Simulated assay, not measured.
Amino acid sequence: MMIVRHAAHRDLDDIYRLAQRAGESGIGLTSLPQNKDILAERITRTTRTLDGLSEKCEASYLFVLEDTSIHKIVGVSAIEVAVGLNEPFYNFRVAKQVHASKALNVYKTLDTLFLSNDHTGCSELCTLFLDPEYRKNQNGKFLSKVRFLFIAAFRSFFEERLIAEMRGFSDQNGQSPFWDSLGYLFFNMDFAAADYLSGVGQKAFIAELMPRFPVYVDLLSSEAREVIAEVHPHTLPAAKVLMSEGLKYQGYVDIFDAGPTLEANTAELRAVKESRLLKVKLTEQVESTETHFLVANDQYQDYAVLLINNKVDESETLHMTAAQAQALNIAEHDQVRVLALEKMENN
């Protein structure tokens, strides 16, 4: 059985193993570094948040996907409650500037990049990684979309705006054409080093070294211009999942690799609008359907979610087996929050 729950310190070794696997896939997942101390701190932040001990600037939820048949953590995903409150959160705003001269009969509209802190205070989806051996049976969508269901259940803990930074393009050697054309000129370090320092929280150098004035896109190399707001091919499936839930590109890109930032109003998320509370009926055998559902117990501190394709009857009751109910720590007639994995055609 596959189940998503909050990360706990007993999961550290497995999460570290996932961080090592993520490193094998190339540069870009900076929020899952191969550093046990930092990973342990991520788990501690989750525990403190659940215990109500964290300020908003430190609040975070780290989820794990567990294969309960072998008690193994095979995936992680996370939500930051509010970014940029204790250290600046940077990206580039893609904008335009007009240069005109009536005397010379010249009028030019030029694309520019402005260093921005516009997403300060937004909630953020981050740290999505699934063991390659488990990239099947809808596990990737399950692990990603759980976060939307959690936000739907506990909206008061999150901000009105939700963002997600997508990994930008880099080649098979980990080289970013955008970084090589812009960032390297100011930082004098390779892309991997700068991306790692940012991911582990050492971001002061960004403010110290990044250009404060607008960057004219036409001055970049053609290779750099072509990848602005482009998603890395390996990340494209994850981006499509987020867009299916209501996020979209609104003109902001990462300062390192120019990957797009997706964003949405929390109130407009599909999970917020379409998830519903259903009563549970226990049966020895359940009738399956073609539709898969995320089913959550809505227990804040002991949050747990299954992905099942059980029947929902005409009385808005979800049929579950005793084993499924036990996994969610619920009993017959309890309520669960249910969301179709994919948007229903009649919605």
Rank of each mutant, 00 (worst) to 15 (best):
M2V: 05
H6I: 03
I15E: 05
Q20G: 09
A22V: 03
S25Y: 03
L39C: 05
T44C: 11
T46K: 08
T47D: 14
R48T: 14
S54T: 12
E58C: 10
S60V: 12
D67K: 11
K72I: 13
G75N: 05
I79W: 07
E87D: 12
A95K: 08
V98L: 06
L115K: 01
N117D: 09
D118Y: 07
D118V: 05
G121M: 01
C122D: 11
R135N: 12
N137F: 15
Q138H: 15
G140H: 02
L143I: 13
K145Y: 02
R147A: 09
F150E: 13
A153H: 08
F158N: 12
E160P: 05
I163K: 06
M166P: 02
R167V: 03
F169R: 08
G174R: 02
G174V: 04
S176E: 02
Y184S: 15
L185C: 12
M189P: 07
A193M: 12
A194F: 11
L197Q: 14
L197F: 12
S198Y: 14
G199D: 02
G199F: 01
G199I: 00
V200P: 04
A207L: 12
E208N: 15
F213V: 13
Y216S: 02
S222Y: 11
A229R: 00
P233C: 06
K248V: 08
G251S: 08
G251Q: 02
Y252W: 06
V253H: 03
I255E: 08
A264C: 14
A271M: 09
K273V: 11
E274S: 01
S275L: 01
R276W: 00
Q285Y: 13
S288V: 15
L294D: 00
A296V: 04
Y300L: 12
L307P: 02
T317E: 12
A322W: 11
E332S: 14
H333R: 10
L339I: 04
L339F: 07
M344Y: 05
E345T: 09
N347L: 13
